[in-house]
């Protein structure tokens, strides 16, 4: 080192030190934006549910070009071990999928920017993610396509679903639909209100929308009653829950897992970069599931082109 100092002149030695420091500091300046490590916490699920999480992670991987670490969580996992592993892996941001990953948000909140997915999330001001709840705008768009004669939509909801109904009101107005929304508190209130709605509903122009609500779309009491009455009265009934299509609802929208994954990657990157707080977004999937038997019963005829565009149809051949 002494020989080197003697060889180099003092002025030139100063220039070299600046250049050396610049070379060392350059990666540190660009790293947060271009080489962030993303952790995905998701449940170790059995088939066919494993495929859902794989598709979401594929979507995340599609949008996240840098280091992506997958953390499959077993049924009885140790949260402390997972958090320690996140530290050891020098993770920069986290995406939780499903209830098992969601249960860690209290631990990682404040340590890592995170978003959640694969759950029926509702906005609470602090949480960001993609909800499984379908965007009513999409539902109403499909309603206009599948049942163009429908003008009035009846919906019962509880306080938990109020945010969605607010979106629906805006969307219905845009779509030229008249939304009759009733807030209830209990299941018995819902039963009585549905009886009123059914008594007043007109077949052809009226439709009933079942939101993703455990009270107003109770599958033990409400769903069987509505399916029977709607069938008897030839009323259009569509649902925010895809499994209702199989049981007799006219249509619903299945989540697009790949698309959700891509959107989650974008949202966590936005959080990491500190640009915005994305909040909870409804699912904007267009994977339409249609019960053709119900459609026929309601007197609707769909062109082959339209039918081929359906993501799933029931009864399945």
């Amino acid at each position: 080192m002494a020989d080197l100092k003697r060889t180099l002149q003092p002025g030139r030695w100063l220039d070299l030190k600046r250049l050396f420091g610049l070379i060392i500091c350059l990666p540190m300046l660009v790293a947060p934006l271009s080489a962030a490590t993303l952790a995905v916490l998701y449940p170790e699920a059995p088939p066919p549910y494993k495929q859902v999480f794989d598709q979401i992670v594929d979507g995340i991987d599609e949008r996240h070009a840098d280091r992506l670490i997958r953390y499959p969580l077993e049924t009885r996992y140790n949260p402390e071990q997972v958090l320690a592993q996140l530290d050891r892996d020098q993770v920069d941001m986290v995406i939780t999928l499903g209830r098992r990953g969601y249960s860690l948000i209290n631990d990682i909140n404040g340590h890592y920017p995170f978003v959640s997915g694969a759950l029926p999330l509702t906005p609470n001001g602090t949480l960001s993610g993609v909800s499984l709840i379908t965007d009513p705008d999409n539902l109403f768009s499909q309603l206009n396509v599948l049942s163009p004669v429908t003008k009035r939509v009846f919906v019962l909801y509880t306080a938990k679903s109020r945010w969605m109904v607010e979106l629906a009101k805006v969307s219905a107005k845009k779509k030229g639909l008249e939304l009759w929304a009733y807030e209830v508190n209990t299941l018995s209130d819902a039963v009585r209100k549905y009886e009123e709605v059914l008594d007043n509903a007109r077949n052809g122009s009226d439709a009933i929308w079942l939101p993703l609500d455990k009270v107003t779309a109770n599958e033990t009491v409400i769903l069987p009653m509505l399916l029977r009455e709607a069938w008897d009265r030839r009323l259009v009934m569509f649902s925010s829950k895809p499994s209702h299509v199989k049981r007799g609802a006219l249509f619903s929208i299945y989540p697009n897992n790949q698309q959700s994954g891509e959107r989650l990657a974008e949202m966590v990157k936005e959080l990491f970069s500190g640009k915005t707080m994305p909040g909870v977004e409804p699912s904007r999937s267009l994977h339409l599931g249609v019960n053709l038997r119900t459609a026929v019963h309601l007197g609707m005829e769909y062109s082959p082109t339209l039918t081929r565009s359906f993501y799933r149809t029931f009864p399945q051949p």
Partner: peptide, 15 residues
């Protein structure tokens, strides 16, 4: 009992 019916796999439920 009135039970909240869920899918077979409850990872997609919040509670």
């Amino acid at each position: 009992f009135l039970r909240e019916e869920q899918d077979d796999y409850d990872e997609f439920e919040l509670s």
